[in-house]
Amino acid sequence: MQKTLRRYFPIFILPTLIAFAFAFILPFAMGVYLSFCKFKTITNAQFTGIDNYVKIFADRDFINAFWFTIKVSVLSILTINIFAFILALALTRRIRGTNLFRTVFFMPNLIGGIILGYIWQQMINAVLLQFETTLVANATYGFWGLIILMNWQMIGYMMIIYIAGLQNVPTDLLEAAQIDGATGWQALTRVKIPLVMPSITICLFLTVSNSFKLFDQNLALTAGAPSKRTAMLALDIYNTFYGRMGYEGVGQAKAVLFFIAVAAIALTQLAMTRRKEVEA
């Protein structure tokens, strides 16, 4: 069977591969090469070695964006996962209206980042108006704005995954724990949490990569204002490419570092949390 199928290579493989070459393979390879070049358009590149990478570390905007991204990510990962898990526990108690609650909590996840960002920009500005200030007056407002926005968007998503995990916890295990005299808290920490570890892995992985790569929401909510102090890494890379003449190479070098960081986070976290999973 393999032999006959092999002759159909052009039909089965080529359409996707051609699109993949234009959208990914060529841009990726050129991107790696151009990060070592000085260029304005991609056809007049001049090789300059690691010059671009050296410039990054003298770039205060980048360093600032890096720490801002870390702060936003850490806080939002914690809050999103804790709230989502609590909501999932509440929605697996067979309370009236569970379906309606689930529907509403999940809905913001479907709204795109740009639209979501502007909805919250309006909302937060209206609140701050009561104190005669605006979202872009102070970087702290932008920081908390992003945290609220990300919670609003991602809690429902993570909650759904936790619910699926909790529903898979075998009831006989919970009953056994109850007969052995376990309190509600013990049943939670000793039985439920170890058994939903796979869901926790997935949610941590998703929140880490989503918050680290956040762009649309950041652009719409504050666009980095005031003076780039609320710009996250993705937005800083974008600004370097399109906001500063002659810095395209530096932007591409930043993008390469960003890619390495994203890949490293994804791989280490998967490796780390896989080990903690328990077989039911």
Binding site: F22, A23, F24, L26, P27, F28, M30, G31, L34, I42, K213, F215, A234, I237, Y238, F241, E248, G251, Q252, A255, V256, F258, F259, V262, A263, A266, L267
Partner: peptide
């Protein structure tokens, strides 16, 4: 899948 869009956006 693990490559962020920023890596390829300019060249693409």
């Amino acid at each position: 899948m693990i490559v962020p869009f920023q890596m390829v956006m300019f060249t693409m």
